[in-house]
Every structure is written in C-alpha cells, then in structure tokens.
C-alpha cells in the first residue's frame, strides 16, 4: 500500500504518453459523419476501416512509400559502405586524425541544418540534382554519416583486439583477419547501423522539403503534410490512417532494437 502514490504517478505518465496515440487511432477509425459531429468521443461510434482505403485513393501513398523506400535503402547502404572502413580505422588506430574525426562527429551535432542545407542545395542545383531522388540520397548520407561512424566505431571497439592478434599468429593477413574474424562479430552492429540510417532517412522531412518540390517525386513525409489543405474535418480520418501506416516501419525497427535501447546503445553513446 506504500506504493499507491507511485502508481498514481505512473498512471499519470502513461495517460500523458498514450492519449495522443489513442486519439490518432480513434480518429483513423471514425466515419466522416462522426468527424463532423461537434462532440468528439474517444471510442468511435461505428468504427470503420474506410479511411485506410480512402487514404490510398486521395494521395499517391503507394508511390510516395516506394520512393521513401528507395531513398532509405540507397542512403542506408551508402552510409554504411562509407562508414564501415573508416569506423574500423577510428576504433583501431590512435592519432590526431582520429581525434579530429570524432571531434567532428560531436561538433556536427551543434550546427543548425540551415548552414549545411543552403550550400548543399546550391551544389545540388549546379549538378541538376534538385528535385531528384539521388539528390536527396546524397543529402541523407551526409546527414546520417557522422552518427553512423560513431555507432560503428563503438561496435568495432567491442570486438576484442586479441582475436585479431590470434588470427595473425595463425598466419592470417590483416585483411584476412578482418574478413574472417571481425566481420562476423560486427554483423549485429552493421545491421543496427543500417536500420538506424534507414529510419533516419525514412522519417526525414526537412531536407526532403528543401530538395523535392515536385509532387511526383515527393517522399512519404512530404505527401503526408500535403494531405491537409484549407478544407474542414472531412479528410482528417484518411490523414490519421495514412499517418499510422507511415509509422509502421519505425515501430518495427524499435521493436527489434528495444532491448538494446535501455542499457546498450544510448548509454554507450553518452558515456563514449
């Protein structure tokens, strides 16, 4: 019974955290008639899935989803391909370059996007890559690279150096040791970094807003924002339905890494 105040507090937190989510779900299940009524309720009176199909017919969600998928796959693969060798070097070698590189990762977090996106935009315009998906991929790679480097070098450091030394005692070259000993142990870290980069790109809005102007090339977040116009409440249902569907990839990602989150990833990143 001593714990009653704590349960009250926990319950209050859960209500605060859950209520917008419940409301989003509730809105997604309501009919247009019910949306128009002046007294909204938590539980839809006649729940419907029509909003989900309407969402597809009102906006090109499939196309936008596919474009988001292509951009996210391309930029996560590129990010990891570029970051992997560098992260190995960062984790295994000492020197001034390492300090500069790690310092850069930290500093890059402080600078506002505007100082990066204006010059990038000017460069992309020179290369005629504005309004194209490759242009957005380039921007996303540069944007995720510092953190991907940081993550991967943490994973490399967790592979004991002794294992590589043992391999070289057995006559393996350094490259052989990396391929046969380090790579298999690094696989979970690479997967985690891939997922992180994928989700960063999938969720990213601002750079897409700057780079993509034409509705035919817009990614999912842009298409979702275009959903709402001057009209009243009638399209809120499909909007809520589309928002829920756009969240699914991120939810899967977090379900996968949920255990690592608590103790591993962030604690390590902060203590680094």
């Amino acid at each position: 019974m001593k714990k009653i105040p704590q349960y009250v507090a926990l319950l209050a937190y859960m209500v605060f955290l859950a209520f917008p989510l419940v409301w989003l779900l509730s809105t997604a299940l309501k009919t247009p008639q019910e949306m128009a009524s002046l007294d909204p309720t938590w539980i839809p009176r006649s729940p419907t899935l029509a909003n989900f199909s309407d969402a597809f017919s009102e906006q090109d969600l499939v196309g936008a989803g596919l474009r988001s998928l292509v951009v996210a796959l391309a930029s996560s693969a590129l990010t990891v391909a570029v970051a992997l060798p560098a992260s190995y070097a960062l984790a295994r070698y000492q020197g001034a370059l390492k300090r500069v590189a790690l310092g850069w990762v930290l500093v890059s977090q402080v600078f506002p996007f505007i100082l990066i996106i204006i010059p990038l935009f000017m460069v992309l315009r020179q290369l005629d890559l504005v309004n194209t998906l490759p242009g957005l991929v380039v921007v996303h790679v540069t944007f995720t690279l510092p953190f991907a480097l940081w993550m991967l070098q943490g994973y490399v450091r967790s592979v004991p150096r002794e294992l590589e030394e043992a391999a070289s005692v057995d006559g393996a070259t350094r490259l052989r040791a990396i391929v046969s000993v380090v790579a298999p142990l690094l696989a979970p870290g690479v997967v985690a970094t891939l997922l992180f980069s994928f989700i960063s790109s999938w969720n990213e809005f601002l750079f897409a807003l700057v780079v993509l102007k034409d509705p035919d090339v817009m990614t999912l977040p842009l298409t979702l924002v275009r959903f709402t116009g001057p009209e009243g409440v009638s399209r809120l249902g499909p909007l809520a339905a589309a928002s829920l569907m756009a969240t699914i990839p991120s939810l899967i990602f977090f379900a996968i890494i949920q255990r690592r989150l608590r103790s591993g990833l962030m604690a390590g990143a902060v203590k680094g």
């Binding site: 859960m14 917008p20 928002s243 969240t247």
Partner: peptide, 25 residues
C-alpha cells in the same frame, strides 16, 4: 509507451498533435 514517441516520424507526431488540438474534432 515511454519509447513509442521516439519511434514515430516527426511529421506524424506533428500531424497527430494537430488532431489533438483541432478546435472541432
């Protein structure tokens, strides 16, 4: 529950709160 907001795209969070604050609905 405490991790879910982290898992949501910022755009969806913004749209969701627009529904929460909507004057009529």
């Amino acid at each position: 529950l405490a991790v879910v907001p982290w898992a949501m795209p910022p755009v969806v969070i913004g749209l969701m709160w627009r529904l929460v604050y909507h004057p009529d609905a």
